[in-house]
Amino acid sequence: MMHFGIGVSTAVSAAPDTLRLAVQADRAGLDLITVSDHPYYADRLDAYAEIGVLLGRTERISGLVSVTNLPTRHPSMLARTITSLSALTGGRIVLGMGVGGLWDDIARLGFTKLTPGQAVRAFEEGIKLVKLLGGGGAPVTFDGEFYRVTDLEPAAVEVPPVWTGSVGPKSLAVTGRVADGWMPGHAADWLSERYRTSRPVIDKAAVDAGRDPADIATVYNFPGRITAEPLAKTRADDGRWIGGSPAQWVEELIGAVLEHGAAGFVLFGPGGSTPDETAAARWAEEIVPAVREATAK
């Protein structure tokens, strides 16, 4: 299944525009709305409060916190949040999970600052525990290095797919062992060195765990300009995508799917900004339908 989405702002000041953009994306037939998770910034909306309201204002589109700041959200409570959103929306949710990176900011919130090794071990534990706490079944007792629950009944609702934002080799291996999707960090795409060296780590870890690497989707955060006229160059000298006309976007994304196995794309504006309404319309009405049609099996 292909996933086409749009990244929206978490700024408190942009809340009215964000609501309008989410409704526009839903009506235009996009698959995903994504928001980031930085709860230590006072000028940002809480990610799960925001995604809940956006899903409540929409009818078909799914929500994704890209990615959940796991050190600030205990996995047992995260499981309750995510299964509740799934129940309330008819399954319109994907669970994004991240190791956490801005540790000084995380510590300012009152959470324990972990070493990189501890953070990765906690990340794997967190994904495993969340997955145990959905789909019904017997009560769960989990006694990990970082997380513990005792005789806790799982929600009857299934836990949605888990996508990670893994960057380092150890967290990439966690993705291969226990996750369902990967969103390459730093807006890296299928032609980047980061992708070329990272995806094999995921694939090897998946095989070593007895999994099929093809079951782990790669979905890209993909920033760029959508212009009325073609650009002479669609990529910068360093290889990063700049953008271009809808036809140039379509050609690029078709190649990503058919030649590199891309499973989806989330549109951002230049530099990771929120796309404006014009760009969002061109994305949803011109680019996405053409890519879907060309890559349909």
Rank of each mutant, 00 (worst) to 15 (best):
F146D: 11
Y147H: 15
T150S: 14
D151T: 12
D151G: 13
L152R: 10
P154A: 14
P154D: 14
P154L: 13
P154I: 12
A156M: 13
A156S: 14
V157H: 11
E158V: 07
V162Q: 12
T164M: 12
S166K: 05
S166W: 03
V167Y: 13
G168L: 10
G168C: 10
G168V: 11
P169F: 09
S171D: 12
L172N: 07
A173S: 15
V174C: 10
V174S: 08
T175V: 12
G176V: 06
V178L: 11
V178G: 11
D180Q: 14
G181S: 14
W182D: 06
P184I: 12
G185R: 10
W190F: 15
S192N: 11
E193P: 07
R194A: 15
Y195M: 15
R196T: 14
T197G: 10
S198P: 08
S198C: 09
I202E: 03
K204L: 10
K204E: 13
K204W: 04
A205I: 02
A205D: 04
G210P: 04
R211Q: 07
D212S: 11
P213C: 13
A214D: 13
D215Q: 09
D215L: 06
D215M: 07
D215Y: 03
A217N: 11
V219Q: 04
V219I: 14
V219N: 05
F222R: 01
P223I: 06
P223V: 06
P223S: 09
G224M: 04
R225Y: 05
T227I: 04
T227Y: 00
P230V: 04
L231A: 07
T234I: 08
T234A: 03
A236G: 15
R240P: 03
W241H: 05
W241F: 12
W241P: 02
G244R: 00
G244L: 01
G244S: 05
S245F: 00
P246K: 01
Q248I: 02
Q248Y: 02
W249M: 02
W249C: 01
E252Q: 02
E252A: 01
E252Y: 00
E252R: 00
L253P: 00
A256H: 02
A256E: 06
A256I: 02
A262W: 02
A262E: 02
A263H: 06
G264K: 00
F265S: 01
L267F: 03
F268A: 07
G271E: 07
G271P: 07
S273F: 10
T278M: 10
T278N: 11
T278K: 13
A280I: 10
A280Q: 09
R282L: 01
E286I: 00
V288I: 11
V288S: 03
P289D: 05
P289L: 05
A290N: 08
A290D: 05
V291Q: 00
V291F: 00
V291K: 00
V291W: 00
V291E: 00
